[in-house]
């Protein structure tokens, strides 16, 4: 069996004297789209950053395609994993093509020039992310949605087996959310492993093969969307009173939040309606409101 593109074991990260990740383990294989879900401050972004070496770790291990990430140089890491950041920092007037070509940094020798394979990779990445038409425009002169796609193209140009997306749908309209995530599915179908933090639980359930529910730096649940998005787990992680149903149009899970976990109304009715013999779902229990401490 080959090494998974990403294997994180018992990762612990402290920042500013606070434990941000506390024994987190995650796997992602080629072809998988793994969604990181959880409340604000759960440690999703930190997890992605710790995996690329941008954030130091206390203990635990990150393996990228079998190699211990702690021993890899920035360059070697960048050939194994590409990241699409949540907030694009494209303040300088680079043409789109040049911004995408920055993704080739780890492939071009310091003293060398970009070769034909680099140009091909850049062209392919722009094509894939639908920014080819923008190639000669300045990154400061395009819309927010277009910038998000430029950053995706840059990550694709990096040509890595593993792709990290930090809130890829956060600033997009509904149309672009679905288009972006459909593209992410295609990228996984090509054999890449994708790990994406996604706020929108419905989108996460619809487009991810598996989900990791993080809260307060710990994994609260992991597995298929059906196994993770249970009213109990949601109450536990988000402190919400939620119902989970199936969307008739997409046949994926739909999470409806009724109120805060302290509010009444969740008194044990079957919260998940599944067409097949649902068994791994449990009635919604009330939690004590501490939820994630």
């Amino acid at each position: 069996m080959t090494d998974p593109a990403l294997r994180v074991d018992s990762l612990v990260v402290d920042r500013g004297g606070r434990r941000v990740l506390d024994g987190v383990s995650v796997r992602a294989r080629g072809g998988d789209v793994v969604g990181l879900v959880g409340p604000n401050g759960a440690g999703k972004t930190t997890l992605l950053r710790a995996c690329t070496g941008a954030v130091g770790t206390e203990s635990g291990e990150v393996r990228l395609a079998g190699a211990d990430a702690a021993t890899l140089s920035a360059r070697e890491t960048a050939r194994r994993v590409a990241s699409v950041p949540q907030e694009p920092s494209l303040d300088f007037e680079f043409p789109v093509r040049e911004a995408v070509a920055m993704g080739r940094t780890a492939h071009v020798s310091r003293f060398g020039r970009r070769g034909p394979e680099d140009h091909t990779a850049v062209d392919r990445a722009m094509e894939r992310a639908s920014v080819f038409d923008l190639a000669d425009r300045s990154v400061t002169a395009i819309s927010g949605g277009e910038r998000a796609r430029v950053l995706l193209a840059r990550a694709l140009a990096q040509d890595t087996p593993l792709l990290f997306l930090d809130e890829p749908t956060a600033n997009l309209d509904v149309n672009h959310q679905v288009r972006t995530l459909s593209l992410v599915r295609e990228l996984a179908a090509d054999g890449r492993a994708v790990v994406a933090s996604i706020h929108d639980l419905d989108l996460a359930a619809r487009f991810c093969d598996s989900l990791v529910l993080l809260a307060d730096g710990r994994v609260r649940a992991a597995g298929t969307p059906e196994a993770v998005l249970t009213p109990k787990a949601l109450a536990d992680a988000f402190c919400v009173d939620a119902r989970v149903s199936r969307d008739p149009a997409t046949d994926s899970l739909r999470v409806t939040v009724l109120g805060d976990c302290d509010s009444t109304g969740a008194d044990g009715e079957r919260a998940v309606e599944r067409p097949s013999s649902g068994d791994d779902t449990v009635p919604v229990p009330r939690t004590d409101g501490r939820g994630t401490d």
Binding site: A54, A74, V81, P85, F94, M102, T105, A106
Partner: peptide
């Protein structure tokens, strides 16, 4: 050029 992207981005495209 990559540093103009910011530290995190520069690191992620492979700049030490």
């Amino acid at each position: 050029n990559a540093l103009l992207l910011g530290e995190a981005d520069a690191q992620s495209v492979g700049v030490d």
